[in-house]
């Protein structure tokens, strides 16, 4: 087993809302190995973004976060603001869906990259500027030395996302978290950005956590995948095993609901995602699960080894074998 760079154990995140406490993440375990590309899939409200905002220490103070997040051995939960500032952008970086709001509109691109470099490394201004141009070149921006002197509004959406990636990898972080980085982009531009992310991962050995709702994106770039539902991990494994023989009923349902060539009728998952103010008892998926039994209402399932997958379903062993989606 390769070295773990990020270990999340029993993470809970609760928000106090006017309607009562809302537990967005409910006991999540997750590992990221050095240099791997881990996909995290889940629908809106499954807690996938909140998990990694908590990891980055970017949640509002009213959020209650408990559990353990170890980044290369360093505990991030309960860390001081000063400690988090030194971690963010140096060993752990995050990019988001909307690259425009991640960039400062009144500063040149090059300045924004060198600012990131100089806040963590002892570099002269000219060294940092030179390095900024190199980074723009790495992420595939043509004429990088000219482009470094331009402002964000002079870049297209895809180019802005490349700039944000350049800033995120400036200090060669161990882990890069990409939260829906291509959702706002057109499909031909998405293909380019995914290639940049893969290139960064291979060239610098950066572990990448790719958060997405698109199982096609996962199938294209990920090594392993974690499936989240209602604030918990319900299944994880390599993409080949997960697509070939998904074991959790939610994973099966997701894969079966996608349109594929051929005109067979689509198979939706019945019902709708749970209200997290009042999640179902036991396994949160039991209200939508075609295999649910009484035990599912009472017992909160944990991830258990099932073949080459880890599956959080008490009935996983009894269920009929799933069709293959690979």
């Amino acid at each position: 087993m390769t070295e773990k760079v990020l270990e999340i154990r029993d993470l809970h995140v609760t928000f106090d809302t006017p309607a009562g406490p809302l537990e967005a993440v409910r006991g999540l375990d997750l590992d990221v190995s050095a240099g791997e590309l881990l996909g995290v899939v889940g629908e809106s409200g499954s807690g996938k973004s909140v998990t990694f905002l908590a990891t980055m220490g970017l949640l509002p103070v009213r959020a209650r976060v408990t559990g353990s997040v170890l980044l290369a051995g360093e505990q991030l939960i309960g860390a001081s603001a000063k400690q988090m500032r030194s971690v963010r952008g140096r060993t752990l970086s995050m990019i988001f869906q909307d690259p425009l709001s991640a960039l400062n509109p009144v500063h040149r691109i090059g300045v924004q990259i060198s600012e990131m470099l100089r806040s963590h490394q002892d570099l002269s201004a000219s060294e940092a500027d030179k390095r900024a141009v190199e980074l723009l070149d790495i992420v595939g921006i043509p004429q990088p030395s000219d482009r470094a002197r331009q402002y964000p509004h002079e870049f297209s959406g895809g180019m802005r996302q490349r700039v944000v990636i350049a800033i995120a990898i400036a200090n060669n972080p161990k882990v890069l978290i990409a939260d829906e980085p291509t959702t706002a982009l057109d499909v031909t531009v998405q293909a380019q950005i995914l290639e940049v992310i893969e290139r960064v991962q291979e060239r610098f050995g950066t572990a990448v956590v790719l958060i997405t709702h698109d199982l096609g994106v996962i199938a294209r770039v990920a090594d392993r995948v974690n499936v989240m539902y209602a604030g918990r991990n319900v299944e994880q494994g390599t993409i080949d095993s997960l697509f070939d023989h998904p074991s959790h009923p939610y994973t099966r349902g997701l894969l079966a609901s996608l349109p594929r060539p051929g005109k067979q009728r689509l198979k939706p998952i019945t019902g709708f995602p749970p209200n997290m103010l009042n999640p179902p008892s036991g396994c949160a998926f039991h209200t939508r699960c075609e295999f649910a039994a009484d035990i599912c209402k009472n017992e909160l399932p944990n991830l258990v080894g099932f073949g080459d997958l880890l599956t959080a379903c008490v009935r996983a062993r009894e269920l009929p074998k799933s069709e293959s989606f690979a």
């Binding site: 293909a191 380019q192 290639e195 096609g216 994106v217 199938a219 080949d240 697509f243 594929r260």
Partner: peptide, 23 residues
Amino acid sequence: SAVPLPDPKTERARTRIMLEGDV
């Protein structure tokens, strides 16, 4: 060819046409 398909084996086998730049 740019649309990712939810099938890892097909994805690895596909030849993709990368378009340069933006619209």
